Computed example of a mutant assay.
Amino acid sequence: MSSQTSHSGNILVVDDSPDNVFLIKTILEEEGYIINTAENGFSALAQLQALPCDLVLLDLMMPGMDGYEVTRRIRGEMQLPQYIPILLITAHDTPNVARGLDLGADDFIRKPVTVDELLARVRSLLRLKHSMDERDEIARQREDFVSRLTHDLRTPLVAADRMLTLFQQGALGTLSPQMQEAIVIMGRSNSNLLSMVNTLLEVYRFEAGRKTLAFQPVDLSRLLKEVAGELTPLAQPKGLVINLDFDDTANPSTITGDRLELHRLFTNLIGNAIKFTESGSVSIRLKNPTLSNSFPTDKITDYITVEIADTGPGIPATEQTILFERFRQGSHKISGSGLGLYLSRRIIEAHHGKIIANSELGKGSVFIVSLPIKQ
């Protein structure tokens, strides 16, 4: 017997052979591990759902549900709060251990097991588990900190925005032209910062699973006209034309979604098109899904498509692959925080939709959003 010091950890041993279970249980309990057992795959999954453990020792060949299927379900279907390593136990004549590893198992050991090898592999996988738990905890603390920070930052920014508005309205006295100009610049900068903080807060709400969507019927035609009207003042100083091109056959244009989040989505996409376009136009197209092949699917009639096209400088091919990743800024001189398109993607995914971008340098960009009509 290996003369290791006692270890801690809850281990689930899954094997249909009582002799194998007894042997492994005896070896591991002598090392100080807490052992639970299951005689088949169904029992193992039920135990994991009720009380997750630190490691699963899983026999590959079992009647009813083999180790391959148990591994697939643990990795693919079960929503476990933390990662649980899987050590496969296989006979020497089992030909396809690689299949189990491809399904998500972390390591394997062959029967008959030796004490030293079993303990070494268990210690190795528990170290992996400990490292991943520490990483997840650090990430959770970081996200919680950023979420709290952005939430706290909103209060002074909102207060500053209101005070600057009062100055601009002359409520606190007449301002000289120079002061008026300075207040306008300060107000614009404060608004940009507040917008960034709001975006960051929304991103972390999505990532922390704290975002609750209120699904209801939403008329996309009306919503897009509303957003276009709100953003027209941004396009007018540049002389940009905002074109609304709604397919008459796109009937109904009503989908099931969260109106506030969809408003945020299209405000961001259309606002980006206006921001990055210096001349020409921004076109908003609402299309009947049967007329578009942008998102091939067996149920294309269940989707409706919105296209936002601009005549801006276009996006380099090297940047198009990372457009929707968090904190990925473009090379354009007025690129923002790199969160807007990431948040847009999260909103679309929450609605079970898709987004792609087609762009060519010097010829503008088209962002294509596909949303299901019903959730």
Rank of each mutant, 00 (worst) to 15 (best):
M186R: 10
R345D: 13
A44M: 02
A228E: 12
L323D: 01
S335V: 01
Q49H: 10
N268S: 15
A139V: 09
Q329E: 00
A98C: 07
Q141P: 03
K238L: 07
L200M: 12
A182Y: 12
L51V: 12
P316L: 02
I308F: 01
L240F: 07
F42C: 09
F167K: 10
Q79P: 06
N192K: 12
Q178P: 07
L244C: 06
T212K: 14
H7R: 14
E349Q: 15
I35Q: 03
I185S: 13
T26V: 08
L103Y: 01
G64S: 06
P85M: 07
S8E: 13
F266C: 06
Q180D: 13
P156W: 04
R259E: 12
F145T: 10
E319H: 00
Q141V: 05
Q375V: 11
H92T: 14
P95H: 10
L119R: 11
V21Q: 10
S283R: 15
I373W: 01
I74N: 03
E117I: 10
N288R: 12
G336L: 01
P85C: 05
R99S: 08
D19K: 13
E30T: 12
N96C: 13
E261D: 06
K275L: 01
L101P: 02
A160Q: 14
K299N: 15
D298L: 07
L339W: 00
T94V: 15
P18I: 06
L125C: 05
L339F: 03
M132T: 15
Q169P: 10
T114E: 10
S189E: 15
G32W: 04
H7S: 13
E137L: 12
S365H: 02
N243W: 06
K299M: 10
D66W: 03
L119I: 13
K363I: 07
A38D: 04
S221Q: 11
T249D: 11
D310K: 01
Q320Y: 02
N36K: 15
L269A: 06
G9Y: 03
G41F: 05
D298V: 08
L125I: 08
A120P: 09
